[in-house]
Design a protein around this nucleic acid. Sequence first.
DNA 1: TGTAAAATACACTAAAAGGTGTATTGCGTA
DNA 2: TACGCAATACACCTTTTAGTGTATTTTACA
Lengths: 216, 216
Amino acid sequence: MSYQSPIHLLIADDHQLITDGISRILETEKTIGEIDTAHNGRDAVDKVLLRDIDCVIMDINMPVLNGLEATKIIKQEKPHIKVIVVSMLCDAAIVSKMMKAGADAFINKDTGKTELLKAIGKVMQGEKYISPAISNNLFTHLTDRNVNTSDTKKHLTAREVEIIRLIADGLTNHEIADKLFLSIVTVDTHRKNMLAKLQLKNTASLVKYAADHKLL
Amino acid sequence: MSYQSPIHLLIADDHQLITDGISRILETEKTIGEIDTAHNGRDAVDKVLLRDIDCVIMDINMPVLNGLEATKIIKQEKPHIKVIVVSMLCDAAIVSKMMKAGADAFINKDTGKTELLKAIGKVMQGEKYISPAISNNLFTHLTDRNVNTSDTKKHLTAREVEIIRLIADGLTNHEIADKLFLSIVTVDTHRKNMLAKLQLKNTASLVKYAADHKLL
DNA sequence: TGTAAAATACACTAAAAGGTGTATTGCGTA
DNA sequence: TACGCAATACACCTTTTAGTGTATTTTACA
């Protein structure tokens, strides 16, 4: 195709300064048509379903419904809509999770206009795009331990996450057991399983792991 | 004063999309003159010292030198320069820390252009400004436990921070003692002192506290 | 519908952390 | 200079967590 109709964008970010800012940056571009904004994931999904959006610029951390869930829903309902993730943080786990959810591009917030336009161009041509800064980072992380594409991530189960949160709040096995109507030994088993699967030594490092991985 | 020369701004944020965005938002305002940008705290301080800046819009989390330190230096070197903090997070501790460092305003990133212009207006008239959303939040947090203005913050000493980091890394009292050439009981005492002063129950909640307060 | 995960539960022992109280030394500053 | 705080150190006793291994019952899904 040679002629390209102006791209109808939706910018989803809970920070108004950012949606405004990105709008201003892009509104002068001749390839860009209308620009809508959404301030949470739910809002983004609603607008995508109602309007004739071509491409969504999606933040990850949003209230009500986060960028991951919103992306999944959008890609399920309207797979032709492109999703570009713009994130502060970009560790391997998050990038792979978002790409698996169907995102078409992943760029960091500290990249500028050029990078953003490049990403829009690529995804509108049906290509995937990950900004070089991130993919390098990703590469070093991946080659650290697991050479396979993306999936070796040892993840915690829902129950385990529930328990690590209570642990981080200072509850003992005993108190957690009472709260969840479980035996103390069960809670203890969950704790030990987490330590084992994450190769951590004790509860302190487990809580740090949880904090680092945004589980708290 | 009635006549006001255009305000020379410096926008300090490590995310180019944000500096660009805010620039675009403000550049059409007639009260605003030149707009410079900086991408870390060091850079911001340098530009403030070299150029004739009136007001700095400052992010907190920046590499090299963070917003807190940069604000302190700027206010020490050039107290007449106004500093407006724009932050994602805004818990009581951070707001009070920044204001104590000499910041003139504190607004949240999810406020828009109007709020930003209001803050600029206020600080240029020599007033302090905290956006309503934050001050409400602040108020509920303060009234929780300590009714005084801002200073009841129980802070950890340098040694304590050093130790909590090692704890979060999974080291036991014994291992920390070896590493820092201390007695095990000393390390244990530090740990207990932290629990007491922060009114926490155990190491898990202490690590969470540290993570929440960006000590790790 | 069989199989793998996940969630549940227990035993036994060792190690670590928590609760309370005390005490000495050095350093900055009101 | 006296006072407070930070850093160091110890005793005694209790509770919690860690290490290792086993086992039953759901649940999900290929």
